[in-house]
């Protein structure tokens, strides 16, 4: 992969106000999804079914936090600070999908596995859709995240295969799918600047096309495992919640917990722990 941007790409210093707003929306969507997904996944640490599966889910959570950081770092290049991206940002300005903010019921490993699967397939699609982005700083980072995603999908599909192999597991996975599916569709809900994101070439696929690809990927795979995938037109619609900042109570509770220490300790800047040796 080349580090040199394509000649028709846009550097951050050349962004018009409209372009910058569109890039920011795209980056916040990516980053917020990753951050909140990771935050929920860490709930499984120590609680996973076996020691080995605990280690694996922890790694996935770390990867997703790491991806959130890749995208928040790009926002920092545009002038944001970490507190503005995370710690002091109003919870109603977060644009993650409804899928990732859902709390886990105790023991619902089926939710963890299936949510991971639905999310990871969507993430591959959307990372591929920004691989040829016109925004140069983004293009450089996509490969890193995509590499890690391969493990995530392997993890999810291996678990799905095993858990759906017996009747009890199958029933639980079907319940999880029925619960998660409407929220998962909100991954593809547009935000206010969606048209600009595509028009400026920041993303080379429309959300509608990505949604179709996602449905065509997960549908046959889940059906092959004996699961019935709900009809996307017949499930409860998210009505733009999530991507426009309207969230469930679970998100607001989570946000309060996550930011509690930050609000209390009043440090000057959040600590960064980055590479010191090359």
């Amino acid at each position: 992969m080349s580090e040199t941007p394509r000649p028709d790409t846009i550097d951050r210093r050349e962004l018009s106000a409209e372009q910058q707003a569109a890039v920011e929306e795209l980056l916040f969507r990516l980053a917020d999804d990753e951050f909140v997904h990771a935050e929920r996944l860490t709930e499984w640490q120590i609680y996973a079914p076996t020691l080995e599966s605990d280690l694996a889910i922890a790694n996935i959570a770390q990867d997703e936090f790491g991806h959130a950081r890749l995208w928040y770092d790009l926002l920092k290049q545009l002038g944001y600070t970490e507190p503005e991206c995370i710690w002091e940002r109003d919870p109603t300005e977060w644009t993650h999908s409804l899928l990732v903010e859902r709390p886990f019921d105790a023991g619902d490993w089926g939710d963890a596995v299936l949510r991971g699967y639905l999310y990871d397939v969507a993430e591959r699609i959307r990372l591929e859709a920004v691989a040829d982005t016109s925004y140069a700083p983004l293009a450089d980072r996509v490969g890193k995240a995509l590499e890690e995603e391969a493990y995530h999908r392997e993890h999810a599909t291996n678990w799905l295969e095993r858990l759906t192999a017996d009747d009890d597991g199958q029933a639980r996975m079907q319940d999880a799918l029925d619960d998660l599916f409407p929220a998962a569709l909100s991954l593809f809900d547009p935000g206010p600047r969606e048209d600009d994101i595509v028009a400026f070439g920041f993303r080379t696929e429309s959300l509608a096309a990505m949604r179709t690809e996602w449905l065509e990927t997960i549908g046959p795979s889940l059906e092959a495992l004996g699961l019935a995938v709900p009809d996307p037109d017949e499930v409860a619609q998210s009505n733009g919640r999530g991507r426009y900042g309207t969230h469930t109570d679970a998100w607001h509770d989570l946000y309060d917990e996550v930011t509690a220490t930050y609000r209390e300790v009043d440090f000057e800047t959040p600590v960064e722990l980055r590479a010191t040796e090359e």
Partner: peptide, 20 residues
């Protein structure tokens, strides 16, 4: 290739040297 998963994002936080 498979073992290199997660090899390219910065995972310095899990190394003692980072806390320099």
């Amino acid at each position: 290739e498979e073992a290199a998963f997660g090899g390219r994002t910065d995972k310095s936080y899990r190394w003692a040297m980072t806390y320099n």
